[in-house]
């Protein structure tokens, strides 16, 4: 986070998930893969399970790429790329202890600070239970998810994002 006066990097790559819940940490594994390739236009952030509390990291960005485990009912290890994540992950209005990506995006939207382009790159989990390390199918999907995220990043960094803002307020 930019604690000083300097403006934040135009693109934020935000990995979320609980490191202690096996495949829930899929987004963090993709983040680690991407962060090996530093880019001055991109900030990489491990958001853990902070949900809405991460809203402060979104302001002043041109684009946001969220990396997460996404359960859409596909085969475990499937890589999902969602360009309208607010529609796909509606806010739950829950406690700070379980506020999800949808809550985060809705809070940023309410503040008028949602980046113009938001993309969610996720992996369908196989195993969300206490423990460290991804399941084999999800671990095998990490490189593909990272490539998908890199393609999105290349597009987002190249010029003005094409996607309309998911919220207008």
């Amino acid at each position: 986070m930019a604690a000083g006066p300097e403006p934040p990097a135009p693109v934020l790559v935000l990995g979320v998930g609980n490191l202690l819940l096996r495949d829930d940490a899929a987004g963090l594994a993709v983040l680690a893969e991407l962060a090996r390739d530093p880019d001055p236009r991109v900030e990489f952030l491990d958001g853990g399970t902070q949900g809405r509390a991460l809203a402060g990291h979104l302001g002043g960005r041109r684009a946001l790429v969220v990396l997460d485990a996404v359960r859409l009912g596909a085969a475990p290890g499937t890589v999902h790329v969602l360009r309208d994540p607010l529609g796909a992950a509606p806010p739950r209005g829950g406690s700070a202890h379980e506020s999800n990506v949808g809550d985060l995006l809705a809070a940023a939207c309410l503040l008028g600070e949602l980046p113009q382009a938001v993309v969610l790159v996720g992996i369908e989990p196989a195993l969300v239970q206490t423990g460290l390390g991804l399941s084999a199918k999800v671990a095998a999907a990490v490189p593909a998810a990272a490539r998908a995220a890199q393609a999105e990043l290349a597009r987002l960094c190249a010029g003005v994002p094409e996607e309309g803002a998911p919220c207008t307020s």
Binding site: P91, G93, A106, L110, T168
Partner: peptide, 13 residues
């Protein structure tokens, strides 16, 4: 505006 856009979800509880 927020309520009209159907995004009351943040306040849904």
């Amino acid at each position: 505006k927020f309520v009209d856009s159907g995004q009351l979800g943040l306040f849904a509880n």
